[in-house]
């Protein structure tokens, strides 16, 4: 039984139905408990996130980075006829091992415009990133290692 899923599914049910009537609470709670009980079989490995405040801070950092890279990618596209961007792959060695943390890192990196997760070597724990405008490799490595990987390690490991 995934207890964390119950309030999430209940909140979704109430949001979708646009009501806080007691009947909807009851029906939503029933559905949430049944689905949460079934979800354990779908994926037996559970995540144990710690430090919610750090997670909120990480979310805020990701939002700021998304806004910043939106601006950067827009300017690249508007300048594209004269100057095509320097695309390239970048290999970054990771210290992160937890699969949920890796999945979260993949979502963060791919959701940010300008970077896409292009692969992960499980044996050597090396991440391959694809970057739209590869000017300064050390800046990218620093961003991934310090800004995303360190909080993710503290949250998930």
């Amino acid at each position: 039984m995934r207890l964390g899923l119950v309030p999430l599914l209940l909140a979704f049910w109430l949001l979708l139905n646009q009501s806080l009537a007691p009947g909807h609470w009851l029906l939503g709670l029933l559905f949430a408990v049944v689905v949460a009980a079934l979800a354990k079989r779908l994926r037996p490995l559970g995540a144990r996130p710690k430090r919610p405040l750090l997670a909120v801070q990480l979310l805020w950092h990701v939002f700021c980075d998304i806004v910043r890279s939106n601006i950067a990618v827009s300017s690249i596209i508007l300048g594209a006829p004269h100057r095509q961007p320097r695309i390239g792959f970048l290999d970054i060695p990771l210290d992160l091992r937890d699969p949920h943390a890796l999945a979260t890192l993949a979502m963060i990196v791919t959701a940010t415009p300008g970077t896409v997760w292009a692969g992960h070597d499980q044996a050597n724990n090396i991440l391959t990133l694809h970057i739209l405008d590869l000017q300064n490799e050390s800046v990218w490595i620093h961003t991934i290692k310090e800004r995303y990987e360190r909080p993710l390690r503290e949250i998930f490991e």
Binding site: I66, V67, N70, V73, S74, I76, I77, L78, A80, P81, Q84, P85, I87, T110, A111, T112, P113, G114, T115, V116, H130, L132
Partner: peptide, 22 residues
């Protein structure tokens, strides 16, 4: 516009992310 203007598929894959995020 980036989908149309950029030359390479690997560059184009970054463009629609603008629409799906902000």
């Amino acid at each position: 516009l980036g989908l149309l203007r950029l030359q390479d598929f690997y560059a184009r894959i970054h463009a629609p992310t603008l629409g799906t995020t902000l």
